[in-house]
Simulated scan of single mutants.
Amino acid sequence: MASHRKLRAAAVVCAAVAVAGPAPAVARAAPPAAVGAPAPAPSPDPFANLTPDEIADRAVAATQSATSLRMTGRVTADGEPLDIDFAVNDRQECTGVMRIGGGTAELRRVDDITYMKGDEAFWRVSMASQGMPEPQIDATIELIKGRWLKIAPGQAGSGDLGGVCDLKGLLADLDEDEEQRSGLVRGPDGELDGTPVATLVKKKTGGETTGGETPGGETPRPETTTVSVSEEGKPYILKMVKTGGDEPGSMVLSDYDKPVKVVVPPADETVDLSKLDQGTPA
């Protein structure tokens, strides 16, 4: 009954943005040099002897090795803008917020249990997308208003929601199609939150898109994907931007390998999904 498809779409689109191929950051501007002072020596380029495709390969390998990270940005799911802010680790634990259709929902997952709390706008959009009739939507919202929906393993939607919190599964998609990472061009270096980054860009025109026309017979729109790769420490992917095409979006990846703390909601603030399915009082 919840927005399982929307949440799943968030994860899929994040992966799609990454697979599409690496991308940009803001060009670095050198600080003005003091009069008479020697110009500072530029930092050595850690990717000086690598092609753009080889940089992308290293970035994907490093990012896939992460034990945790935070994803923040806006993507497009089923034609709708979707804002997400999730911290995820490799134990399928996560905590975060998503916004879609004017509504907001929080999601937490720990010990294979998923907790989800949405505002009224979120639940209405979610349940309407599942074809639920208006009277049932009203009654269900009354039961879960201001409370967390508790979803145990094996219950409806548990698998899809788990996919959103499956770090290894999401990062595995980065390697789904290596051809998408070929033919990249390195743009000017930049800086992202104080970290120097290498910029990789890939452009695709409608005629170059694999598969030719879309199922509806329309030629795919041209798109540009830009990825920022850290030049300090491990070559993690720090930002991905996709413009044009059918699924534009922007995603920042941060807090690599930092602990993800998931707080379990108090029992008196939760509603068990099985009770809603059975129509019993929460």
Score class of each variant (00 low, 15 high):
Val13Trp: 06
Gly190Pro: 10
Gln130Phe: 12
Ala198Phe: 10
Pro265Leu: 12
Met251Asn: 04
Gly162Ala: 02
Val227Asn: 00
Val197Glu: 12
Gly162Glu: 13
Gln180Tyr: 09
Ser126His: 02
Asp160Ala: 00
Gly36Tyr: 05
Gly21Asp: 07
Leu200Met: 01
Glu142Met: 05
Thr224Tyr: 01
Lys202Pro: 00
Glu120Asn: 07
Asp193Leu: 03
Leu192Ala: 14
Ser250Cys: 06
Pro46Val: 01
Gly157Trp: 12
Pro22His: 08
Ala152Val: 07
Val60Leu: 14
Gly103Glu: 08
Leu184Asn: 01
Thr224Lys: 01
Ala41Trp: 04
Val164Glu: 00
Phe47Lys: 15
Val252Trp: 05
Ala9Lys: 00
Gly249Met: 04
Val12Gly: 05
Met71Asn: 09
Glu269Thr: 13
Thr76Ile: 05
Gly217Asn: 13
Val125Asn: 14
Leu107Cys: 05
Lys275Glu: 11
Thr209Met: 04
Leu174Thr: 07
Pro265Lys: 15
Val60Ala: 13
Thr209Asp: 00
Ala59Tyr: 15
Ala66Tyr: 02
Ala87Gly: 08
Ala39Phe: 13
Lys145Trp: 10
Ala29Arg: 14
Gly101Trp: 09
Pro32Cys: 08
Arg108Thr: 00
Gly216Tyr: 11
Glu213Asp: 10
Gly194Glu: 10
Met1Phe: 11
Thr205Tyr: 04
Val271Met: 11
Gly244Glu: 05
Ser228Ile: 07
Ala9Tyr: 04
Ala172Phe: 09
Ala61Arg: 12
Ala105Glu: 10
Ala20Thr: 12
Met1Asp: 12
Ile55Cys: 08
Asp257Ala: 08
Trp123Pro: 03
Asp272Tyr: 11
Asp166Gln: 01
Ala77Phe: 10
Pro265Ser: 14
Ala61Pro: 07
Leu167Trp: 13
Gly21Asn: 03
Asn49Leu: 14
Pro46Gln: 08
Gly73Phe: 11
Pro42Gly: 03
Ser129Lys: 05
Leu143Phe: 07
Ser129Val: 03
Met132Thr: 15
Val125Thr: 11
Gly244Phe: 11
Thr195His: 09
Arg74Glu: 03
Thr210Ile: 09
Val13Ala: 00
Gly162Asp: 14
Gly245Thr: 01
Ala59Phe: 13
Glu269Pro: 03
Ala152Asn: 15
Ala23Arg: 01
Trp148Phe: 09
Ala61Thr: 14
Ser230Trp: 04
Asp193Met: 01
Leu82Trp: 06
Lys6Asn: 06
Ala77Glu: 15
Ala61His: 14
Gly96Arg: 02
Leu50Gln: 14
Pro38Asp: 10
Pro196Asn: 06
Asp166Leu: 04
Arg70Ala: 05
Gln64Ile: 12
Val60His: 06
Glu142Ile: 06
Gly279Tyr: 13
Cys14His: 09
Ala267Lys: 13
Gly194Asp: 13
Trp148Ser: 01
Met71Phe: 05
Ala198Asp: 02
Asp268Cys: 12
Asp189Tyr: 08
Glu247Gly: 01
Gln130Glu: 15
